[in-house]
Simulated scan of single mutants.
Amino acid sequence: MPKISGNEIRRGNIIEHNGGLWVAVKTDHVKPGKGGAFAQVELKNLRNGSKLNERFRSADKVERVRLEQKDQQFLYETDGMFTFMDTESFEQIELPADLLGEARPFLQDGMTVTIEYYGEEALNVTLPEKVTCTIAETEPVVKGQTAANSYKPAVLDNGVRVMVPPFVGEGEAIVVNTETFEYVERA
Rank of each mutant, 00 (worst) to 15 (best):
V155E: 10
E102S: 07
T132R: 12
V30F: 07
E179A: 13
D71Y: 10
L127W: 01
K51V: 06
L99D: 04
E120G: 10
N45V: 01
V184C: 06
R104M: 15
N45Q: 07
V184Q: 10
D109Q: 13
E8W: 03
V62F: 00
V62K: 00
V113D: 03
D86L: 06
S89R: 10
G36A: 09
S58V: 07
Q145H: 13
E88L: 14
E68N: 13
T78G: 08
A173W: 05
G20K: 06
V168H: 06
V62E: 00
L52T: 00
A173R: 13
E68Q: 14
R11M: 12
E170P: 07
G110F: 04
R11H: 08
T180S: 12
R66D: 14
V125P: 01
D86T: 05
G144I: 11
G36C: 06
M163Q: 15
L156Y: 05
V30L: 09
V25A: 00
S150N: 14
N124E: 12
D71F: 06
V175W: 02
L75P: 01
L75M: 11
K152N: 09
V176I: 14
V175T: 14
Q145V: 11
Y118F: 14
N177Y: 05
L46I: 01
N13V: 02
V113K: 02
C133N: 07
G12M: 05
V141L: 12
H29F: 09
T134G: 11
E68A: 13
V176F: 03
G35W: 02
Q40F: 09
A136Y: 06
E77H: 10
D28R: 12
H29M: 11
G159Q: 07
A39G: 06
E137F: 08
Y151T: 10
A148N: 15
R186N: 15
D79A: 14
R66N: 14
R186T: 15
P96S: 12
P153Y: 03
K26E: 12
V160P: 01
G110S: 05
T87H: 04
K34V: 11
M163K: 15
L52H: 04
L67Q: 01
N48P: 05
N13L: 07
T180Y: 05
V162Y: 02
I14V: 13
M1N: 14
I15V: 13
A122C: 07
L99W: 05
E116F: 03
L43D: 00
I14P: 00
N48H: 09
Y118M: 05
T78L: 10
A37I: 02
K143P: 11
P32M: 03
A154I: 02
K44H: 02
V184W: 01
P165I: 06
G49C: 02
V113N: 04
I93Y: 04
P128I: 05
R57G: 12
V155N: 09
D157Y: 03
T132E: 15
G144T: 08
P153H: 11
A148F: 13
I115G: 03
V160R: 05
L127D: 08
M81G: 04
E172R: 13
D60T: 01
A187P: 03
Q92N: 14
D98V: 10
V23P: 00
F181T: 03
L127M: 04
G80R: 08
